[in-house]
Design a protein around this nucleic acid. Structure first.
Lengths: 217, 217
DNA sequence: TTCAAAAAATGACCGTTAGTCAAAATGTAT
DNA sequence: ATACATTTTGACTAACGGTCATTTTTTGAA
């Protein structure tokens, strides 16, 4: 049993190593343009080996998304442990999400990609996809928990259903950060060119706006 | 000059015809899976002909996005002509956007796709891409105009910068609709499965929430 | 240490698809 | 009717994701 476990550990390490390589290649070329040959080369294995560890290219992408969402959850979960009002927790989560996106843009790109492909690809049903969904569900529970805390401590209106409000906050945050993020990282999206607000300013105002909307008077 | 114009008109018609076919194929198979051969077959032309009208596959996708964003703008622009307060205009725009997405899901998918690919593909710099950007900028001006009207008629707080608020509203709306939309159209995204709110309910509450946040007290 | 059986890794190969281009078909003007 | 210009065609190429027979490495019993 010990031997099997060592083998498994080695296999897991190798898998992580391949994900590292894939992240690097995708950082350079984007998910579409990254080829399996490139990834294999970067990981210093043959192409065939990639397929011993991952079913196909989409699986590699999913593995990156899973890793990213797990990391994000870790930082969100900590917020619930702080001595804050529910409303402040929600605000903190927004900032935390932004910080995550800024620190690891590759994961944000991966998430966006994931959501676009999920509907059209068979692979997005397997084990890894379920893990991603599970992570997303977990993130949602953190938000809902903070909302419930806020409704209890009186910092957040209790006229909304916390679950529904959670979906709204989650979706809206993603949308705003998506937009603001693209403003930072691209030469395209010219809608935003004649607007010189910083990403932080946009997010802060957004959090303020949502906060006012759900604040208890 | 008249002859040249006729020729040009014919060419433009043919182009629209190809876009129609491409939309149909992508509705069936999704953008990724749609092949140029399929599109050619659907449009009843040879593959080579596609390339006489569009530089490449990405261009066809852009043409669809351009068409969609032009349609959306048309419905947004009408709202500015109504006898409404600025705040009501903004709410109406949100509903209008939702209606558009529900009526023409293919364009919403195209927009999402567009935003994911824009950074990685060369084609997203040419004439069509500029037209898309121009449409997006135009949509933004409608939102900003409504916000300015609202700040003038007193229905919207004037503590925010209208342009910045415009970006926030636009981004947040896209995010919420994106999420709610996927809930409707997919069997995935299981975060949302144990939540049985309707798309309309989510959007209404979102509009309500944002509205409260920017309402003048 | 030796060796054979099992496991892991390899890369030449295959099918598919975006994109090209020489040849064919169609349109136009005299 | 003919010659010239324009448009269309589809066989072809290159590149990529994915496969699998073969080679290399690991393992453990003698």
């Amino acid at each position: 049993m010990v031997k099997l476990s060592r083998k498994e550990r080695k296999r897991a390490e190798r898998k992580e190593w391949i994900i590292d390589a894939a992240e690097e290649v995708m950082r350079r070329s984007g998910f579409e343009s990254a080829t399996m040959d490139e990834i294999a080369h970067e990981a210093e294995v043959s192409k065939g080996t990639l397929y011993l560890y991952f079913k196909n290219k989409a699986s590699i992408h999913l593995a990156i998304s899973e890793r990213g969402s797990r990391m994000l959850n870790q930082s969100l979960s900590k917020i619930l442990l702080l001595e804050l009002s529910g409303l402040e927790m929600i605000k903190k989560m927004g900032q935390s999400y932004l910080g995550f996106v800024q620190q690891y843009p590759i994961y944000f790109t991966a998430f966006s990609y994931y959501e676009n492909l999920i509907s059209s690809n068979e692979t997005y049903n397997g084990e890894l996809a379920i893990a991603c969904e599970e992570n997303a569900r977990e993130a949602m529970t953190y938000i809902v928990r903070a909302l419930q805390i806020g409704m209890q401590d009186g910092s957040i209106k209790d006229t909304y259903d916390p679950k529904e409000l959670g979906i709204i906050i989650w979706g809206a945050s993603k949308g705003v950060i998506h937009m603001a993020f693209h403003k930072e990282s691209r030469n395209h999206m010219r809608i935003l060119d004649d607007v010189d607000f910083s990403l932080d300013s946009i997010i802060n105002n957004f959090v303020e706006l949502l906060g006012t909307g759900m604040k208890n008077d």
